[in-house]
Design a protein around this nucleic acid. Structure first.
Length: 334
DNA sequence: AACACCTCCAACCGCAGTAAT
DNA sequence: GATTACTGCGGTTGGAGGTGT
């Protein structure tokens, strides 16, 4: 692993992966003399490396306080929360995660968290819902399309400005399901969903990064005393607020459960409800399609019955839910 | 088995900020 | 104030290993 295939530069200094022998030399030297003076360190330690390479190797790999291994769910949550506030300030984020280096966090963000958020329909840069989903929600909640008595076809959707073929297909699929189920409930819930989306985008289209003082002094008034009873008036996505570094109020991971999505977004990513049992449902749209019990902590792949507004979920809705979810999956939303 | 493609992550690069001279 | 050295940071690279065909 590493970089250049030519493991030496023009000054005869070695580059590329470190050997165990080099590591030991560096450790021995630093244990004896301490670190610092990185330019002269390699020469004194008998290493054919530049000082910068030695410093990087020490700070990112050899330092004794480094915690190696998989990131915990809590760490992942913290990274997401901090990234939302700090942006790509990896060193600042790392300073709040003992034992983790900025490089490690940066890699983990780019290889895991970023993709996960994208699958959830969240822009990993702004931490807000993707605009194309907003577009879809807006169109689906328009009164003409939610009226089950009205025949629709793809030309209706084109007429409403839905030009993206993927979204067009998705909307078409979804609406064909809706036309065979109870429309009133769907309509109300989709409107609610749209309102939540708009609320969020109006309140906080581009989250402002806070300074460190603000991070360490969260506004505890922002969230309800009941952690599952979120209000819809703050700048957090979908109107849900959690203070930075607050306890994990979301779904808890159990030992026998597969890894779940970050609790930071459980409340906003309605897709998650399908994945983790939705223990913190807010007023989500497409409710009858995707909602699971608000008090449930049902794990993945549960065979328990889903309830919507206190009633068992209609099998057709369940079918539509699958269809909708699969459609999202097919076009890369999930 | 062989090849192509993908994912992960250690290591590098270049720039910016700060301290020393 | 200008220059040099040092350090820290964020972005990027590319090889190893895994996975799919």
């Amino acid at each position: 692993m590493g970089r250049s295939s030519d493991y030496s530069d023009k000054n005869g200094l070695k580059k590329g992966p470190w050997t165990a022998e080099e590591d030991q030399k560096l450790i021995d030297y630093i244990q004896k003399y301490g670190h610092g003076r990185w330019r002269t360190l390699p020469k004194n330690a008998g290493l054919k490396r530049c000082g910068k390479s030695c410093r990087l190797r020490w700070t990112n790999y050899l330092r004794p306080d480094i915690k190696r291994g998989k990131f915990s769910l809590e760490e992942e949550d913290t990274i997401i929360q901090l990234h939302r506030v700090l942006g790509n300030k990896w060193s600042s984020i790392a300073s709040r995660l003992p034992g983790r280096t900025d490089n490690e966090i940066k890699n983990y963000w780019n290889t895991h968290i970023k993709k996960k958020l994208q699958r959830m329909g969240i822009d990993p840069v702004t931490h807000s819902p993707r605009l194309d989903l907003l577009e879809l929600s807006s169109i689906l909640s328009s009164s003409s399309l939610c009226n089950s008595t009205e025949q629709f076809n793809t030309s209706n959707l084109f007429g409403l400005g839905l030009m993206n073929p993927d979204l067009l297909n998705l909307a078409s699929t979804l609406l064909s399901c809706q036309s065979t189920t109870t429309p009133q409930n769907l309509h109300q819930q989709d409107q609610s969903f749209q309102q939540n989306l708009l609320q969020y985008t109006v309140d906080d289209p581009n989250p402002q990064y806070l300074n460190e003082t603000q991070i360490q002094q969260p506004n505890l008034e922002q969230f309800s005393s009941n952690p599952n009873n979120f209000s819809c008036q703050n700048a957090e996505p979908f109107g849900v607020s959690r203070p930075i570094l607050a306890p994990n109020y979301g779904c808890q991971e159990t030992e026998n459960e597969s890894r779940i999505e970050p609790s930071v977004y459980q409340n906003q990513a309605y897709f998650n409800n399908r994945m983790n049992g939705g223990s913190c449902i807010a007023n989500m749209g497409f409710g009858s399609l995707l909602t699971t019990p608000s008090s449930s902590s049902t794990p993945l792949n549960s065979s328990s019955t889903n309830y919507v507004n206190g009633c068992p979920e209609d099998e057709r809705d369940s079918y539509c839910s699958n269809l909708f979810f699969d459609s999202l999956n097919a076009i890369g939303f999930v």
